[in-house]
Amino acid sequence: MEAEQIKRIYEAMHENGFDHIELELGEDHKIRMQLDRPPVVAAPAVSVPELAENGNGVQRTQVEIRSDKVGSFSFADRQLKTGDRIKKGEILGSIKGISFQDRVKCSLDGVIATVAVEPGSIVDYGRLLFVVNID
């Protein structure tokens, strides 16, 4: 396969939003291409920080983490629940679509206020996944 052809496939993958592709070239030749994309960092891109008041009258910032992909959701290392502390950069879960698996990452330190998603459920575009109280 020519370098020019690989470049064209790469561009087509990019345009159509595919993360990987498998090509069969004749009977014994198969190639697999994987785009090196950064994981979805849902929090800063899709959430709106809000000021919420806790029981003690102290104001703190709340962040909604929403999905910008469509697929099946699963938690990462642990099944998160309200009150769990999460750290900046921690992988909260993943969304598996037909051709990709995107990690849902938290971009700030905080505490889970709401878990709005169940493992195995289908999340669609814009679906609320977590509400996080930011430190």
């Binding site: 159509n16 939003g17 595919f18 992909k69 469509v70 697929g71 099946s72 598996k96 679509g97 037909i98 051709s99 990709f100 289908i122 669609d124 575009y125 814009g126 679906r127």
Partner: peptide
């Protein structure tokens, strides 16, 4: 299932999102 914003190229023409819904459901 919602597959994207109003713009057709981001929703009703979004092949990966449509196929992901078909697969997951």
């Amino acid at each position: 299932y919602c597959i994207g914003p109003a713009r057709p190229d981001l929703s009703y023409l979004n092949i990966p999102n449509i196929l992901s819904v078909a697969h997951a459901s």
